[in-house]
Structure formats: C-alpha cells, structure tokens
C-alpha cells in the first residue's frame, strides 16, 4: 500500500520524491545551500480518480507536478506509471510515456505559441508522434475542438483572438489529443473569472467521466479542489501533511495546518462570519525549513516534541493519513 492513501493498483505511484534546488552564490560560486522544494512526497492516483494537491505558494506543489512529468529531474525517489518505473527512462522512452501523461498549465497564454493557429497548436501532438494523414489530423482536431466547446471554424484563429477561458479550452484540447490517461493540471482554473472557471471545471469533470481520465489537480483554491477531487493531499513546505478522501478532509481535518487553511477561507455566507484562529506569520523559508515538524513555528498546538522529532504520516481514520504528533 502506497503511503499516499488507499488506491489498489494505482495509475500513478510516487514514492519518497525529493527535489532540492542548489543555490549558487556568485557567477562561479559553488552550490552551498539548497531549496528543499519537495522533501519526501509519496502519493498514488487511481484510474479515473482525481487527487487534489493543495498548499500555499512555495509549498512545492507545482514542483511535484513537474517532477512527475519529468520536466525537471527528481533528486531522489521513484515515479511509476501503471506499474512501470519511469524515473530513469531516457528521452526517447519518455517520449512514448508522455502520450499517457499530459499537462495543463495555469496561464494558457504563455503555454500557447502565439505564431501558430489554434488548429496547429491542438494538432501539433499528432505531427510530433506521426499520427494519421493530414486529412485525418484535421478531422481529429475538429473533433477535439467540438469536444472542448470550441467551434471548428476557430481552428484558423491565433491564440490572442481567444478569451482566457477559450485559451484554457485549447490547452485542454491539446492535452487530450494523444488520448492520455493522466492529466496534471497545475492551477488550471486559477486565472479565470468565476463564471468561466465554472465552465472549465465542468468540462474537466465531463471529460473525466467520458474518457476515464485520472487527474492530479494542483491548486490553492480549497473550494475548487473540494469540488473536483475524490481525494485531497495537503502540502506544507515540501511535505504532505495530510491526505484523505475529500469528505473526511473537509468534515474532520486531521492536521492543524489543514484546519487553519479551512478556517482561513472566507465563506460566501454573510451570517457565517467567524471569529477565526488566523495563523500568525509567514511560511518559513524552504532553504532552511524548521526542525521537527515544519509547521511547528506557526502551529497553535505545538509542544516541545514538535520542534525535535519529525512526525510521519499515519492513518488516523479510514483513508485519512496525517503527519502530526498530537493526532
């Protein structure tokens, strides 16, 4: 059983993932300090499942996504897709794997080539992987356009002619082109206005049902993550501090950090105004994370042990794992 939760034969299984970025001082300086971006993350995603990954800026959640895609190389740890270890595959072998695993980024504009038409952008994967004839490709691209809610006539337009929500639909169409089984969404709806955000969230959920896709949905908006996910993992300073089925996590958060995150979200209910426990201070630097439990410097319940000994993830309720000495 993977540490990340209760998934029988997972589509994606990540174990003990570590990514440290060296900091160089000066032009020829030798690396000394390191940014502990990801520090021992394990997680698993089942077939057709959405795992939400939440945390504040700098917690390492985006780095986890990029390392899984091997857009950056892990310092250590393993990544397995459908039981196959892909951690050390060479570029050629990795190319084949990428048909199975795609990504949608936050800012669709910076990830779409402004000199290509929308049709070329969505059809590019077919060319890269030598799939079909020209006519077949055009047919497939038109089908993808319709599937994500764009009109086939829009294939000839350039990215700047689309609205933010439409550009995100283009990004999704491109990710779908090769029939992937896993899509990693790195804040895919964060830049969108709420009315458009709802359209894109609904689209992603519909596509999941239709194609049995698995999602790693990385976001900072807890309500969005709760809505779209089956299970949710919470990260703090490079570590997963809690992972649980969403209903458990939102009804009975186990980790004090999860609790604080939930209490911080302003609710769209004027009569529910709460006198809340707000966390003091900022997230400490990932260059020299606090000893013991990394959250102890901001935790309202911290005791002496928390500063000395690092808590490990353990199950406190069915499917709910929490890294806290006090639970």
């Amino acid at each position: 059983m993977p540490e990340g939760g209760i998934v029988a034969s997972p589509l994606l299984e990540v174990r003990d993932l570590v990514k440290h970025f060296p900091i160089r001082r000066g032009l020829f300086g030798r690396a000394g300090a390191r940014v502990h971006a990801v520090d021992g993350v394990s997680l698993a995603i089942g077939h057709g499942e959405t795992l939400g990954l939440v945390g504040e800026s700098g917690c390492g959640k985006s780095t986890v996504g990029k390392v899984i895609l091997r857009l950056i190389e892990p310092t250590s740890g393993t990544i397995a897709l459908d039981g196959r270890d892909i951690t050390t595959l060479d570029t050629g072998a990795m190319r084949a794997v990428r048909q199975q695993m795609q990504v949608v980024f936050q800012d669709p504009y910076s990830s779409l080539n402004p000199r290509m038409t929308a049709g070329e952008i969505v059809g590019e994967p077919f060319i890269n992987y030598a799939i079909g004839t020209g006519a077949e490709r055009a047919e497939k691209v038109a089908a993808l356009f319709r599937r994500v809610g764009l009109r086939a006539e829009q294939m000839a337009r350039y990215p700047h002619e689309f609205s933010g929500g439409q550009r995100q639909r283009l990004g999704i169409a491109r990710a779908l082109a090769l029939g992937p089984r896993l899509i990693i969404g790195d804040e895919p709806v964060s830049a969108l206005d709420v009315s458009v955000q709802a359209q894109v969230i609904n689209l992603m959920m519909d596509l999941q049902e239709e194609y049995g896709l698995s999602y790693l949905f990385i976001a900072h908006d807890l309500a969005v993550v709760e809505h779209i996910s089956h299970r949710v993992a919470v990260m703090y300073l490079g570590k997963i501090v809690e992972v649980a089925p969403k209903r458990t996590l939102f009804a009975t958060p186990g980790h004090p950090y999860t609790e604080a995150l939930l209490a911080s979200v302003p609710l769209p209910k004027p009569r529910a105004r709460r006198k809340r426990v707000t966390l003091r201070g900022d997230v400490p630097s990932p260059v020299s994370p606090p000893s013991g439990c990394r959250f102890h410097t901001r935790c309202p319940y911290a005791v002496a042990r928390c500063a000395q000994e690092e808590p490990l993830l353990r199950e406190i309720a069915p499917g709910q794992q929490v890294a806290c000495h006090l639970r």
Partner: peptide, 21 residues
C-alpha cells in the same frame, strides 16, 4: 458558479456540476 467550501460534507461524496454562466 462558485464551488462552496464544505460542499462535500453537506452533499455527500457525489460530485455535482457547477452552474455555468
């Protein structure tokens, strides 16, 4: 169109569609 925090607690684990504009 906004997802509500705690929706899964109130509505159960089933996922619903958001109202779109």
């Amino acid at each position: 169109s906004i997802p509500q925090l705690g929706s899964s607690v109130e509505e159960g684990a089933a996922r619903r569609r958001l109202a779109e504009i």
